[in-house]
């Protein structure tokens, strides 16, 4: 298993470390999102579908372990909910993995995974860009809100409706929320299926689903989501590792860079307003969607230049947003040091 680490020389691991730093800055700052650039990047680089998905999952697993260790200390994990979700997620993961293997057999795995990515990245990218332009929230974790308590009145209407369906067995979550176990399993299955199919943690869907569908307060949804990703990522990695589809030559340098970047990104949250940068995040996702679309079009039309163009698009998109976070932080640090202007002091 170490052969993968040694066979690729130094240039490729160095590139993965650098890419990991970019992704880590995004994950540390926005609390989500970096990991679902990994699998498309690996696909664009020409790795087989199962290696791109399996290595993406192993990377997500490592990232989630680090993030959960932080959230555990803040008491933001509902272990009962997390463990219940593992059942649904595991079934979803297995179905997703079997779908990848079957689609590979049909020779369609790369195409289907790419099209799903284009839909997901494009859809979420449009939503986030639209809400950022309108000045609304959504599409990301509000760091301040995640650190505070959410009032019971803040539970979304759809979650209240779902909580009213009392299909036994019912389970009581933290904060006295009662919900049917079946709803929990359904959300877990859907996100597990996406994880197994796309090699992502599923957090960018699970976290909003826990809040909007089940009604879990945001701080607990964030911590429980990460706790759950440790298991879904771990089990998913194990499934793909059994197929020999986890490339440590990719995962090890990527994780080393990402853990460093996450420190920078998470430090930046106390300096920079997320709202000002959210539009770049939306544009980055759209850039990812365009990159995968260009790659698929290049394959279909047999255009060789499409692949490097896709890779440059993905890297440039991530670099743009990570750069915006770092530059804004440094500016904020200097402005902070200059002290309040006379007008502000009033």
């Amino acid at each position: 298993m170490i052969e993968g680490l040694l066979s690729s020389g130094m240039a490729l691991p160095a590139m993965f470390v650098a890419f990991g730093v970019l992704i880590g800055v995004l994950f540390g700052f926005f609390g989500m999102g970096g990991s679902f650039l990994v699998t498309p990047a690996l696909l664009v680089m020409g790795y087989p579908s199962r290696v791109a998905v399996g290595s993406g999952l192993a990377f997500v697993f490592g990232t989630a372990v680090i993030a959960t260790l932080k959230h555990r200390d803040l008491g933001q994990v509902d272990y009962k909910l997390g463990v219940s979700m593992i059942i649904g997620t595991t079934i979803g993961l297995e179905v997703g993995k079997e779908m990848v293997v079957y689609l590979e057999h049909l020779g369609m795995a790369g195409f289907i995974i790419s099209v799903t990515y284009i839909g997901l990245l494009g859809g979420i990218g449009v939503f986030i860009t639209y809400t950022a332009l309108k000045g609304g929230g959504g599409g990301g974790i509000d760091h301040d809100e995640a650190d505070g308590e959410v009032d019971a009145d803040d539970i979304p209407d759809i979650a209240k409706k779902i909580q009213s369906y009392r299909i036994p067995p019912m389970m009581t979550l933290r904060g006295g929320i009662q919900v049917s176990l079946w709803m929990v399993l359904l959300v877990a299955f859907a996100t597990g299926l996406l994880s197994g199919l796309l090699g992502v943690g599923g957090g960018f869907i699970r976290m909003p689903a826990l809040f909007y569908v089940i009604g879990v307060p945001v701080p607990i949804a964030v911590g429980t989501d990460l706790f759950e990703i440790v298991f879904s990522g771990g089990i998913g990695s194990l499934m793909y590792a059994q197929l020999g589809a986890v490339n440590l030559g990719i995962v090890v340098p990527l994780l080393a860079g990402s853990a460093l970047g996450a420190r920078v990104g998470s430090a930046a949250t106390s300096l920079v307003d997320e709202e000002g940068i959210k539009i770049y995040f939306g544009l980055m996702l759209l850039g990812g969607a365009v990159a995968v679309a260009v790659q698929e079009a290049g394959k279909g039309l047999d255009i060789g230049i499409a692949e490097p163009i896709s890779l440059v698009l993905i890297l440039a998109s991530a670099l743009m947003v990570a750069g915006a976070v770092v530059v804004s932080s440094v500016r904020a640090l200097r402005t902070e040091d200059e002290g309040p202007t006379p007008a502000a002091a009033d």
């Binding site: 192993a58 490592g62 260790l69 990695s237 194990l238 440590l248 090890v252 080393a256």
Partner: peptide, 16 residues
């Protein structure tokens, strides 16, 4: 397979 996933886990904890 267990070694591969275990190595990622150990790396994550060491990095943390």
């Amino acid at each position: 397979a267990l070694q591969t996933v275990g190595l990622v886990l150990v790396e994550a904890m060491v990095l943390y």
